[in-house]
Every structure is written in C-alpha cells, then in structure tokens.
C-alpha cells in the first residue's frame, strides 16, 4: 500500500521547508515567498441570479457568493473567489464534508460542484517589494487605488495563467497557479524578486 502521507504538494520537490529553516529569519529581504498549505478547493458553477442557489450556497458555506466581479467573500474558515459571472472558487480548510454538503445542497439547482484541490499550487507573496515583483510580469494595475485586499483577478503572471488574490494591504498576495506551471512560476518569482532580496518562509497559515 502506498503511504497516504506520501501526498506531495505541487512544490514539494523544491524542499522549501528545509530551505526556510536553513535561511532562518526573513530579515530585511524585500520579498517573502512561500508555498501555502493545502486547502480544499472547489470549483462552483451556477446561476447567481437564482435565489435558491444563492441561499443553498450561503447555508453551507456561511457566506454568500461575491456578486461583484474580481472580489472575494470571506466566512468562517472559507473564502470564495469570483472567477466569472457563473463561476467561483471556494477555498476552505481541508474538509471533505463541506464538499459533500455543497454537492447535496446544490443538487437540482443546475449547479456544478467540482473538486479541484489538487489542480493548483498556491504561492504566498509578501514583503515590501511584493507589488514590484508582480509588476514585472502582470499587466494589471495593482496600485492601492485600483487593487486592494479582498480583490482577486484571473490574469497572466509572466507566461502562466494565475488567480491573483490580494489577502492583505501590506501587501500580501496568494497566487493560484495550475499545478504543472508551479515550478516555472516559482522559479520566475525568485528570479524577478532577486534584486530585492528573497526569503523563503515556512508554510505557515
């Protein structure tokens, strides 16, 4: 039998935890990078104009779906990212029950509930120069007047499609990238951040 603990995160092969321990305190590095810990990710599609659908989702998640494009909604241990007018990404602590509950609650509502937890790596990017690093590969306007904590966007970063979620105004970002592109994007981020000083931080929360 395979050891279930042999589950590997998308960037496991880079040995980031060991590197983080070795490099120690982030010090005055302008950019901190981490691989964010595993979360349950569910792709949700449905009709946002359908009240019953919205209610069912709110009942299970404890938070309503963000109706405004490129925004997020946060509830107890769960964040919902707007991906399209009928598409959202539900991100929660690893919790199989919630997925099943969502499937059950939405049956008959013309919705689609698809688990995609393994589809994407999530890279945490923070630090004083985090925005500059993104500006090197992302055409979005990330100035605080245009993009703040709580905003998200599907866009291109370098040559990879990403979901960019600003989680804090420090600034802090979570970058969702397709698993197969994760190694490329991590390498790109480290390279782009080089001039500011990079520290790999442990996968905290």
């Amino acid at each position: 039998m395979a050891d279930p603990f042999q589950w590997q995160s998308p960037l496991a092969h880079l040995g980031l935890a060991a590197r983080s321990n070795r490099e120690g305190d982030p010090g005055d590095a302008g950019v901190h990078l981490s691989e964010r810990p595993a979360r349950t990710q569910v792709n949700l599609r449905g009709d946002s104009a359908d009240d019953a659908f919205n209610e069912a989702v709110t009942m299970v998640l404890g938070v309503g779906l963000p109706a405004r494009p490129n925004t997020t909604a946060a509830g107890e241990g769960v964040t919902v990212l707007w991906l399209g007018p009928d598409e959202w990404l539900v991100v929660a602590a690893p919790d199989v029950d919630r997925l099943a509950a969502l499937e059950t609650a939405l049956a008959g509502h013309g919705a689609a509930v698809t688990e995609v937890s393994e589809s994407r790596a999530v890279i945490g990017l923070t630090g004083a120069n985090a925005r500059e690093v993104l500006m090197k590969g992302c055409a979005l306007d990330l100035h605080p007047r245009a993009f703040r904590a709580g905003r998200c966007a599907q866009t291109l970063l370098a040559r990879a499609g990403v979901i960019l979620h600003q989680t804090g105004n420090e600034p802090a970002y979570d970058i969702y990238v397709a698993r197969s592109f994760a190694d490329y994007l991590w390498t790109w981020l480290e390279d782009a951040a080089g001039e500011y000083g990079v520290r790999v931080t442990g996968a905290d929360t």
């Binding site: 494009p69 490129n70 055409a139 966007a153 866009t155």
Partner: peptide
C-alpha cells in the same frame, strides 16, 4: 464586460 479593462494579451 465583467472584469473591466485588461490588456489585449488576456483575450
């Protein structure tokens, strides 16, 4: 119409 102004490369 949903995401607002974006560069042509996204389309």
């Amino acid at each position: 119409p949903w995401c607002g102004a974006r560069d042509e490369t996204e389309f």
